[in-house]
Design a protein around this nucleic acid. Sequence first.
DNA 1: GCGTAATATCAACACTGATTTATGTATTAG
DNA 2: CTAATACATAAATCAGTGTTGATATTACGC
Lengths: 130, 130
Amino acid sequence: MPQLGATPLAPVARPKTRTSVPSPAHIRSTIAALAAPPEELRAVAAYHKALSDPTRLRLMQRLAEGPATVNELTSHVDLSQPLVSFHLHRLKAAGIVETRRVGREVICTLGRDVLTHFRARERVLLGLAS
Amino acid sequence: MPQLGATPLAPVARPKTRTSVPSPAHIRSTIAALAAPPEELRAVAAYHKALSDPTRLRLMQRLAEGPATVNELTSHVDLSQPLVSFHLHRLKAAGIVETRRVGREVICTLGRDVLTHFRARERVLLGLAS
DNA sequence: GCGTAATATCAACACTGATTTATGTATTAG
DNA sequence: CTAATACATAAATCAGTGTTGATATTACGC
């Protein structure tokens, strides 16, 4: 909790009369502040970092259609195989892609659950509507 | 940037039998490929990159409660003011944060529309449920 | 005018990131 | 066993990013 900066400005002093009902925004902010330790923020940031590359998005786009081997993915994005392996590792580290070995091939699948999970977390975190 | 590497490997030629009916997955992939030019992917990637930093997420978390000046944001995240300005520039470049000058202060607001817009685009792009 | 508060910008730094080339490991085919 | 296929790993390079500290800009009060 990096919240030691006692703001010497006291800018928008809000003397909440405790009798009145707190605003929905304040309720959301309070909940978010309590439920979002730095760890949570780092996790959400890591999730976004995994999706911050066009190549990785193209891989996910392909995997959204169904499982694929590393070779199929390589020819789909038309990049070198080591590079595809690198990006797959990133996606795997973020829990977005899962892999299983079958014979001498590695089959990759998209973990939609993780995606929807993080999207939901973020929606709460930022108090987004809908 | 690094997208001209004519791979001298000529990787895996796949002789698709064109007589059979294309699978639903292939139809979807074709549609997705047509509807998602590289520009679209780069935009989504840039959006995610803007959200890939804990400090920026904390700033957005604060802004989710309502507008704030740069000073308020600085004391909220307890970091140096130049650093906060730097991150605000990133968020502004991504269209996520808007700023307007009032006197000698700059008031920042969160653009929720942009967020929901990009989330919707991504949902379509990746064929997510819901 | 002067001083000061609120932000922006600049220069330099370490660190991470994506990319390439080359090499290594595992598994199947002959 | 040997050779080829599918994938992973290593090292090197280069661009980008977060961070800091010092300095500039802008607006307000005196």
